[in-house]
């Protein structure tokens, strides 16, 4: 029983991709809290925050798998299937980075040097802002589908993407500055800690890069 014709409509991937992005953003956002506790030397709370990040990362993985399964080869879609899968892969890198960073810091009980702390937090939150900007563009995905990737909606998304690019440029500058300061004080710190600090800074910067790449992926979808 039932009408066969309803079965020709595959489940839309739009809402799942948007939900996945929400989770990814939450994981990134938790990093701000995480480093506030690290700076406050409250390792109990740091551990709690880390658990939350790991949980969100797992959730994102699960959501990613669902989307992959849903996007079967036999679907006829307005955008290339590979482009959508790429987009989800890039989104999924954000919680992975958040997990890696928090893992490094917890594993080595890595404290941020006092002179760096304030700048470091700004750096983290700007990268999280970039992820937020990416989420904002992904929140327009349903509208893009509605208009068939044309017209004023496309202009709007292009504007959002250029805002996102600006934030990312800012994070690059912040990252360079952090490195410069770290370089000037590294002689006084434990060499191994310094190595890992560089690594942590790099990974946090990668969050901004991934956010920017989400914008690039959306552009690809629109230019189809």
């Amino acid at each position: 029983m039932g009408s066969y014709i309803t079965k020709i409509f595959g489940a839309s991937p739009v809402a799942p991709i948007q939900e996945h992005m929400e989770i990814c953003y939450k994981a990134a956002k938790e990093l701000v809290t995480f480093f506030e506790y690290v700076n406050g030397d409250n390792w109990e709370k740091v551990r709690e925050s880390r658990e939350k990040i790991v949980r969100l990362e797992n959730e994102a993985d699960e959501a990613k798998k669902q989307i992959r399964m849903q996007l079967s080869q036999a679907l006829f879609m307005p955008v290339a299937r590979a482009d959508l899968l790429d987009l989800v892969l890039v989104q999924d890198k954000i919680p992975n980075l958040a997990r890696d960073v928090s893992g490094l810091v917890i594993g080595r009980q890595l404290a941020i040097p006092d002179v760096l702390q304030e700048r470091f937090l700004t750096f983290v939150s700007r990268n999280v802002d970039a992820a937020k900007g990416a989420r904002k563009t992904i929140r327009e995905l349903d509208e893009l589908y509605e208009t068939g990737f044309r017209g004023t909606e496309v202009d709007l998304v292009r504007r959002l993407i250029s805002e996102l690019d600006q934030i990312e440029n800012e994070t690059d500058a912040l990252q360079a500055e952090l490195r410069r300061i770290l370089f000037s004080i590294e002689k006084d710190l434990s060499p191994i800690d310094v190595m890992f600090l560089y690594k942590v800074i790099e990974s946090i910067g990668d969050i901004g890069d991934m956010a920017e790449r989400i914008g690039r992926r959306l552009e690809l979808l629109m230019n189809h």
Binding site: I8, F9, L75
Partner: peptide
């Protein structure tokens, strides 16, 4: 769908 109007059409069906 050809006019990019439908998010997913199941071609198998």
């Amino acid at each position: 769908g050809m006019a990019r109007g439908i998010s997913a059409i199941n071609l198998g069906v």
